[in-house]
Amino acid sequence: MVAAYKALFNLVLGFFLVLSLEGVGRKITARVQRRIGPPWYQNFIDVFKALSKHPFSNGWVFDFGVLMALGGAMATAMIVPMGSTTWTPFPNSDNFFVIMYLFAVGALGMAMGMVGSGNPWASIGVSRALTQMLGYELPYLIVISSTIFYYKTASIHKLVELQKNGWNLLVMPLGGIIAFISLMGMLGKKPFDISTAPAEIASGPMTELSGKYLGLLHIMHVFAMFVEVSLFVDVFLGGGNLGWYLVKFIVVWVLAVLISSVLPRFRIEQMLKFYWGVPLGLAFLNALFVLLGWTL
């Protein structure tokens, strides 16, 4: 029963934390561009306004896709540990690969629903998003594999416990940097927002979304970002109790926003070449260091 409350807490905290951080991110970007920017609670208003509108639906697969996306993202967000064993809802199932692949349920649901809207822009956006996934996941998974090999566990809360004496970022700095670059791609931040490029392909997968569909998908996106940043904080920054965890979460987020606010967008094959060039090579180098025991 306690586990259920913890899982619920995950959802609530994830929702409020990431949504307000998104607003903060908009504010930061605005300040970087010498604007005033919207208030930090702007994204709450946006989401609730979207939910209050009278939407259009493009058939049952469209509805089903949105529900599947949100359901999958919520399930993942319920499993993710928040920094310590105390805030781990399900200690037996927080295996890294489980989280990573459960996450794909949401992505697949979104892709299916959006292509189901019958709009070619959505198809192009989904095609780009999947290609992009091929780009950023590979270096990330190699780095995570070497981490798992080093700590001999894939369970996130155990990884956090094992980092008591030193963050993983300090043990394998190379791996941490590459994981952060991959994280930028996962979050869809600026140089890697190829799939939703509003000026080229009319916001890609979201082209046909209106009203509550847009709102629900925004919430799904919020949970997705919560999972992604949490994983980075847990695996590389050593989690910590709830307060430290939140601080680390915010620092990672602000760093990603700052980087993204000054960069233009990649083309899709440029992005693939970028990820499969230096980051992938460094990820293998990192794996070699781990194999040879050359860690800090």
Partner: peptide, 17 residues
């Protein structure tokens, strides 16, 4: 700076107000 009032451009009519 329109964005301080929460006014943002959108690409498609489905999302716009």
């Amino acid at each position: 700076d329109m964005e301080r009032f929460g006014i943002t451009p959108m690409a498609t009519p489905r999302q716009a107000d």
